[in-house]
C-alpha cells in the first residue's frame, strides 16, 4: 500500500501560521503510525515568505504556497481556486481544513470543485480496523456523533473546529517548499468584489487560549451582575465566556467569547459556568475542560451532569464572594 498523503490548509494570522495548522499537523501525524504519511501544508496569502519559512520547520514534509495580491484579504473565489490548484498538484488522499469562519466556507466549495465529499466540523479523525479514514461529526448540536466515510472519491475533505485537537510540536523534517506560479489567479473571473473589512475591538484574553474561563449564562440576570463575571475572570487571569442568551442580552458585545457549536471550543484547566443551563449546543464547546464547576439555582440543571463540582445557588452571589476572597488575599 502506498503511503497516504495528507494536505492541511494552514491559515495565516498576521503573516504567521494560525494555531489550527499545528493542531491539525499533530493530529495528522497520529493517523497512520505504521506507514509514514506525507504531510503537506497549503499556504495561500500575500507576502508569505515568513509563513513559508515557519511551515518548513513545522514538522511537515512539504509546503505549497500561492503568493498573490489577490489573496491579501479573504475572498472565497480566489482562496478556493488557490487551494484547488495545490490539491491538484499534490493529489492528497485526505485534505484537512480548519472550520474557521473562512475555512467553513472553503471546505464545501472545494468539495464541489473537486467533486468529493466533505465532513463538517469533525470532533475526531480516526482510521478504522480496515485502514479506512473515518471522520466523526457532531449532529443535533453535539448530542449525537456520527461516523462519516468518504469511500469513493478523493481527497476526503474534513473541516475541523479550531481548538478540537491539542498542539504537539513536531520535530522538523527535511521539507521541500514549492511556490506555485500565481498567474492563474490573475486570469480567474469573479463576480464578487471585496469592499472592505470592519474589525471588532479585541476584548481581552481570547476565550480559547485562557487557562480559566468564567462563563456567564442567562441566569446571571442583569448587566450589573455581569460585571462580577468580568471581575472574576480578570482576578483569575482568565477569560470571560458566554452563552448565546448572554450575547442576545448585550452583556457581552459580539460572539467572540461565545462557547458552543456555533461559537468557540474551549478546553481550559478550569471552566466555571454560572447561570448556564447546559444546552447541548453549549456543552459541545466546553465538555473537554479539565475541571468543570457549575452554579445554578435549579438543582436539576443539565449542566450538573457534565460537571465535577456543583453549587445549587445564585450564580452572581457565589462569583462575587469568590472575587472578594481573592481581593482580600492580594
Amino acid at each position: 500500500m502506498e503511503n497516504k498523503k495528507i494536505l492541511i490548509y494552514a491559515e495565516l494570522k498576521g503573516g504567521s501560521l494560525e494555531t489550527s495548522a499545528y493542531e491539525l499537523l499533530a493530529k495528522a501525524r497520529t493517523l497512520f503510525p505504521a506507514a509514514d504519511a506525507a504531510i503537506a501544508l497549503a499556504i495561500a496569502g500575500c507576502g508569505i515568505d515568513e509563513a513559508l519559512k515557519e511551515a518548513a520547520v513545522s514538522g511537515a514534509d512539504l509546503v505549497y504556497g500561492v503568493d498573490s495580491p489577490r489573496l491579501e484579504l479573504y475572498h472565497v473565489d480566489y482562496h478556493a481556486e488557490a487551494l484547488k490548484k495545490i490539491a491538484e498538484t499534490f493529489h492528497p488522499d485526505i485534505f484537512l481544513i480548519p472550520a474557521s469562519c473562512t475555512g467553513e466556507e472553503l471546505a464545501p466549495t472545494l468539495g464541489l470543485k473537486l467533486r468529493t465529499g466533505v465532513a463538517a466540523h469533525c470532533v475526531d479523525l480516526q482510521v478504522d480496523q480496515n485502514g479506512e479514514f473515518l471522520q466523526m461529526v457532531p449532529a443535533f448540536g453535539g448530542k449525537v456523533i456520527g461516523e462519516i466515510y468518504t469511500p469513493k472519491t478523493k481527497p476526503q475533505i474534513a473541516s475541523i473546529k479550531p481548538g478540537m485537537f491539542s498542539v504537539i510540536r513536531q520535530q522538523p523534517r527535511s521539507c521541500k517548499t514549492v511556490l506555485l506560479d500565481d498567474s492563474f489567479l490573475e486570469e480567474l473571473k469573479t463576480k464578487i468584489k471585496l469592499r472592505g473589512i470592519e474589525k471588532d475591538e479585541p476584548s481581552g484574553v481570547p476565550v480559547e487560549q485562557a487557562d480559566v474561563v468564567v462563563c456567564g449564562g442567562f441566569g446571571i440576570e442583569t448587566a450589573d451582575n455581569w460585571k462580577q463575571v468580568e471581575r472574576l475572570a480578570s482576578l483569575l487571569g482568565g477569560a470571560v465566556g458566554s452563552t448565546r442568551p448572554a450575547v442576545d442580552q448585550g452583556w457581552v458585545s459580539g460572539e467572540q467569547q461565545m462557547i458552543g457549536t456555533s461559537g468557540k471550543t474551549v478546553r481550559p484547566k478550569v471552566y466555571i459556568g454560572a447561570g448556564v443551563s447546559g444546552a447541548t449546543h453549549h456543552i459541545c464547546g466546553m465538555k473537554d475542560s479539565n475541571v468543570i464547576i457549575s452554579i445554578n439555582t435549579d438543582k436539576d440543571a443539565e449542566i450538573f451532569a457534565v460537571s465535577d463540582y456543583k453549587i445549587v445557588g445564585d450564580g452572581a452571589a457565589v462569583i462575587k464572594a469568590l472575587c472578594e476572597l481573592l481581593e482580600r488575599r492580594q
Binding site: R115, L134, M136, I145, Y149, K287, I292, S307, Y309
Partner: peptide, 16 residues
C-alpha cells in the same frame, strides 16, 4: 460522496 457509519452518543457525564 459521504456515507454514514454508526451513530454514537458520547458519554460526557461527570460525578458532580
Amino acid at each position: 460522496p459521504t456515507q454514514p457509519g454508526q451513530l454514537l452518543t458520547p458519554d460526557m457525564s461527570r460525578n458532580a
